[in-house]
């Protein structure tokens, strides 16, 4: 069901209309968002992707290009083995922040499994909680530490 709503939501960018007072068209994920200090609580790979990763890598995994770019995750051979996405999600790389403190081991396994089997990828999912635990640094960066407000 969520997939259908999402398909409609991805068409929205084509209609460049000002957000007037009529009720906004909300995707199911946006509608169901729970904000707050608990952060990300879902253990569903698709939901985690669509409410976190999709912001940059886009709902269909197509990535984006501006002055720089966000890599596409669809049809991405780097996702064949879980070690690579697990390491990137836990520790970040270049412009991508580390999400190790946002997500627990189970959530990262669910997310990587989604990446390996959806968004146009058809790999044998091989992520395990042990892999995630190994990838975690001894003293993880705190993504909420603010030097500025």
């Amino acid at each position: 069901m969520k997939k259908i709503v999402l398909a409609i939501a991805t068409l929205l960018p084509l209609c460049a209309v000002p957000a007037h007072a009529q009720p906004a068209q909300m995707s199911a994920y946006a509608e169901d968002t729970v904000f707050g200090s608990d952060g990300y609580t879902s253990t569903d790979g698709e939901e985690l992707y669509q409410t976190l990763c999709a912001g940059c890598h886009m709902p269909d995994g197509s990535g984006a290009v501006g002055a720089g770019r966000y890599p596409a995750l669809s049809d991405n051979p780097n996702l064949e083995y879980a070690a690579y996405p697990v390491t990137l999600i836990v520790n970040g790389q270049a412009g991508m922040p580390a999400f190790g403190t946002f997500l627990n081991d189970e959530q990262i396994v669910a997310l990587v499994t989604y990446l390996q089997t959806d968004l146009g990828n058809d790999f044998e999912p091989d992520a395990t909680v042990e892999d995630v635990a190994i990838a975690r640094p001894a003293s993880p960066a705190d993504p909420n530490r603010a030097e500025h407000e």
């Binding site: 009720p23 904000f35 990300y40 409410t51 909420n144």
Partner: peptide, 21 residues
């Protein structure tokens, strides 16, 4: 918003959805 999970949740939304929230 400044950093944190809520910022990423807004980032994953379309502009009209952020405005609605």
């Amino acid at each position: 918003t400044w950093r944190g999970a809520d910022t990423f949740k807004f980032n994953a939304m379309q502009p009209a959805e952020r405005i609605e929230w």
